[in-house]
Write a protein that binds this DNA or RNA. Structure first.
Lengths: 345, 345
DNA sequence: ATGAAAGCGCTAACAA
DNA sequence: TTGTTAGCGCTTTCAT
């Protein structure tokens, strides 16, 4: 069907291995006479020979391929859902993989009946698992993986300390936000959190908030933690009752955006009456009026470094897994300003 | 290293081929005694045997893998650049590929020195090439491909009619926009176009505009085509000189968004003074004030159908390539309204 | 119902 | 400097 080494060898009147050496070996190791080498190269060109990369990989017992899982398990990665989170992370992963001469495949459909076969059929040399939730099923799948797995958005401890992990520094990030507000004169600062399930990262952010506030001698009271997890209406009732705070840190941009959109309806001006900080610095931050100040995760970097950890895990299987915590940034936009001095009327 | 068929065979006291039949064959074709089959299954379970998918693929001379190229050639796909175009298309491609039990890999780094080796080393069973520009280099690469290639965002004729193509119906899409404006009473409608290089699709949209306007007995004059290709400042000078039009169709959303943002500075209200229609219905359309009415490409569908064409090309290599033209939609938002009756003051 | 042989394309190890 | 052997893991073909 396709032109193989053997065909080239026949034409060049040498054995296949010589062709392999001439065409594929590093220049240094090659011990072939110039004349033969030239003959081989000509033959290859004439036949338009190309290696079969999978034959080579099969022989070398490697795939030169990384897989990406995301979310709850074997739902396929979606680029266009939600914010650009996953897209940016993927950019980092792909960039890193290419840097190491690896390809990236999107978590494949499985040829068998069980989705988890995809991580056990030798398809990949390594996996990046993104935004995994620590359910029993996921832990079981993780344990079944036959290749190194780097987990993004998790701390190693959540998974038995067996896998390298990459996560943003939620503690430091929230600190950036709190300090920013403090410097603007804010002392009455609330934290708002939502979400159906307990989200590990949101929890970490809340804890960080409490800690950083305490550092400023402003330990938050219970009423300073506004939990709209069960009832999104709680958000509206908070806004309609003259918020006692001058600033709001929100666990994620989506909720912060709603606040910015709803606030005017309740006579609350952002940032004059209420400063708002989100988390993730999603692209829509710039489009909001006012634009949303937000803490940014180094998503590209996270994906990128994940591949480095994977390479290390592939080449040194028995090394202790690294837990990589990367610093956040603060993108100051229009939704934060000096604290108001008076009560809302 | 890993458990193979042979290991299972030894434990079950049968030959490897029997194991293969029991574990992998369709139920019907299997001619193995129940007792043996059971023994094999037990052995496999005991050893925790998993197929090596690449050995199977290698043997079958297929990869069950599709590749995606985008842009000018071998720049790697970027998910987070520009609008969500590529992300949505990818979602369609991935969905389609999975539906056919194929994986999708992002255009890989090349193990050799020449990037284009990636399309000739048998890495993929098929390729989706997105947003290709018809340069000589790209034509050459296309010709060198050893697997079927489906081109997205192109017409078959641009590439010698040799490859299946998928494109949105720019003509019909622009027609939706023109008709929408016409029904709102607009008669003075301009078309705005930009971009460094000649963009085939933008050109097609411009031509469609002329044609649809003529259909309404409103053939556009030269002054109704505002070309800001060379000079983005031309946009501002257009806005500052009391536009004689009541509506503007723009070749793409990005430029339309700028108009919406700049217009107020020149005392032009959208849509009261000037209705604006974009193209692509990008997600930021909703965030603009007013939200941007825009023509939408069926991007997910385009990616999805591209994989169908690829499957067909893989299974029937000699079939005539299909040219798929998928209809656009019109997302009416706030930036279009009834035509103003008076001149701008 | 089961098994033996053979080979996909490539390259490491060893031999000449 | 060149060639031979051998095998990666799997499955099709043909024989028993």
């Amino acid at each position: 069907m396709s032109v193989t080494l053997k065909d080239v060898a026949k034409l060049a009147q040498v054995s296949p291995i010589v062709v392999s050496r001439v065409l594929h070996n590093k220049a240094e190791g090659v011990r072939v006479s110039d004349a033969t080498a030239e003959r081989v190269r000509q033959a290859a060109a004439e036949l338009n020979y190309k290696v079969n990369i999978w034959a080579r990989n099969f022989r070398a017992q490697q795939t030169m391929m990384l897989g990406v899982l995301n979310g709850m398990g074997f739902d396929r990665p979606r680029f266009n859902d939600g914010p650009r989170y996953f897209a940016t992370l993927m950019d980092g992963i792909v960039d890193g993989a290419f840097r190491h001469s690896y390809s990236v495949a999107l978590c494949p459909q499985l040829l068998g009946d069980d989705p988890s076969e995809a991580v056990t059929d030798g398809r990949f040399d390594g996996l990046v698992w993104y935004s995994i939730t620590p359910t029993d099923a996921n832990r079981a799948t993780l344990a079944a993986c036959r290749c190194p797995v780097v987990i993004v958005h998790a701390l190693s401890g959540q998974y038995g300390g067996k896998h390298p992990t990459v996560i943003c520094d939620n503690f430091q990030g929230i600190g950036l936000g709190v300090d920013h507000l403090y410097e603007l004169g804010h002392r009455k600062i609330a934290f708002m959190i939502e979400g159906d399930a307990m989200n590990v990262e949101s929890e970490a952010r809340l804890a960080a908030f409490k800690s950083h506030m305490a550092r400023h001698d402003l330990p938050p009271a219970e009423t300073d933690i506004i939990d709209v997890r069960k009832d999104r209406e709680a958000l509206k009732s908070y806004l309609s009752n003259k918020p006692p705070h001058t600033a709001l840190m929100v666990h994620a941009d989506g909720l912060a955006a709603d606040i910015i959109r709803f606030a005017p309806k309740y006579g609350i001006r952002v940032p004059e009456d209420l400063s708002v900080i989100g988390f993730d610095s999603t692209e829509f931050c710039d489009e909001l009026k006012p634009a949303l100040t937000s803490i940014s995760q180094p998503l590209f970097e996270m994906g990128n470094r994940a591949t480095d950890l994977l390479m290390k895990a592939i080449s040194e299987p028995n090394i202790d897994p690294v837990e990589l915590v990367l610093p956040c940034g603060l993108d100051v936009r229009g939704s934060t300003g000096p604290a108001r001095q008076t009560e809302l009327s």
